[in-house]
Amino acid sequence: MFDIGFWELILISVVGLVVLGPERLPVAIRTVSRWIGAARNMANSVKDELNQELKLQELQENLKKAEQMGMKDLSPELRDTVEELKKAASEVQRPYADNKDEQPSATTSQKQD
Score class of each variant (00 low, 15 high):
R79N: 10
Q112H: 08
V82H: 00
E84K: 11
W7F: 15
Q103F: 11
G21I: 01
A28D: 05
F2D: 07
P95I: 00
V82L: 06
I29Y: 05
R24G: 02
N41R: 00
V27Y: 13
T31A: 10
L59W: 00
M69Y: 14
I29R: 06
F6K: 08
L78A: 12
K55T: 10
N51K: 09
V14A: 13
Q112W: 11
A97M: 12
P22T: 00
M42K: 03
K64R: 15
E58L: 14
N99F: 04
Q93T: 09
K87Q: 12
V14D: 14
V15A: 12
V46I: 03
A43H: 04
V19N: 08
T31H: 06
A97P: 00
P22F: 07
Q112D: 14
A88P: 11
L59T: 04
I12T: 09
R34F: 11
D73A: 06
S105D: 08
E58T: 06
I10S: 15
T107A: 13
G70S: 05
V15G: 02
Q110H: 12
K47N: 05
S90N: 08
R24F: 04
A39V: 02
E8N: 11
V15W: 07
K86P: 06
V32T: 11
I12Q: 08
A106Q: 08
A66V: 14
I4H: 05
R24M: 10
Q93K: 03
I12W: 09
G16K: 01
T107W: 02
A28K: 01
S109I: 05
L85D: 00
Q93S: 08
V32Q: 10
N99V: 02
N41Y: 03
V92L: 12
K87M: 09
A39W: 02
E91Q: 10
Q103E: 12
M42R: 00
E61Q: 15
V82R: 04
Q112A: 13
F2T: 10
A66G: 12
K86H: 05
A39D: 01
E91N: 09
K64M: 15
Q103L: 10
L63I: 15
P76H: 06
A97K: 13
E61Y: 01
K65V: 15
V19G: 08
P26Y: 01
M1Y: 09
Q110V: 14
T108V: 14
L56I: 04
M69N: 14
N51F: 01
L59P: 03
K111F: 15
L9R: 12
V32I: 14
E67T: 13
N44A: 02
G16T: 02
E67W: 14
A88R: 12
L9K: 09
E49L: 01
A89Q: 01
S45H: 00
P104E: 05
K64F: 11
D3Q: 07
E77A: 13
E53I: 00
S33W: 10
E83T: 15
V18T: 07
